[in-house]
Design a protein around this nucleic acid. Structure first.
Lengths: 109, 109
DNA sequence: ACCGGTAGTCAGCGACACCAGGTACTGGGA
DNA sequence: TCCCAGTACCTGGTGTCGCTGACTACCGGT
């Protein structure tokens, strides 16, 4: 993926991570791995951590430190009520955008 | 729309404008109006002009100055070959993104 | 003479993904 | 024993992009 794809992630990545957390709690390293498995091979690790710091500061998630058998303790993030709301907002905005763009794509042919 | 939606536009707006230019040449003011009609009511006028400057500098469009009956001359933009390529790339990236996100949306229910 | 619509420009700002590096803990191989 | 790979997280600086709020300029109608 090129620079264009990177730009397109802005704002969207937060929604993606919140959506992942909506299915079950997870920690940063795990989320990064999962994203890579799902095809987002170029997502920088630092990006995910920075994003998690942001959503924590905005109180969209609850955090719990859990010791790991291998390596330093994990910070497990759980989506809270505010996070749910934010996620809903994301889906609304996404649907809006996707609809118009799909229209453009059709109209172009 | 809130700040979230604004962030989501990043990278996408360029694709949208290129897609509009793919249907026919247009000038800035016209594009802004069209975007507003299509539901993007909050797009700042300045944003579109700045974007057009960018795509011109990257040589994705050809420009022609055309006098207007009302007001200052228009700068009419036409998508060129490089612009077409860029647009194709945009559609590829968009499809990729939309697919994964749709998957997340399904999986969440 | 002035105002509103048309048309474009510009400086400064904030948000966010990236890069490159760092810290810290564990277990296994040379 | 020592170092490395894997696990797990953090940080400072960079570039891009959309927004804000201003400004210039041209025209027609009141």
């Amino acid at each position: 993926m090129g620079k264009q794809a990177t730009e397109m992630l802005k704002g969207v990545l937060e929604g993606i991570v919140l959506a992942i957390l909506a299915t079950r709690p997870a920690y940063g390293y795990e989320i990064t791995t999962q994203l890579r498995e799902q095809g987002f091979t170029d997502i920088a690790e630092g990006t995910v951590y920075a994003l998690l710091v942001r959503v924590e500061q905005r109180d969209l998630v609850d955090v719990e430190k859990v010791p790991s058998e291998k390596g330093p303790p994990r910070k497990v993030y759980t989506l809270n009520a505010r996070g749910q709301d934010r996620l809903s907002e994301f889906w609304r905005n996404w649907s809006f955008l996707a609809e118009r763009i799909e229209q453009l794509h059709e109209g172009e042919k």
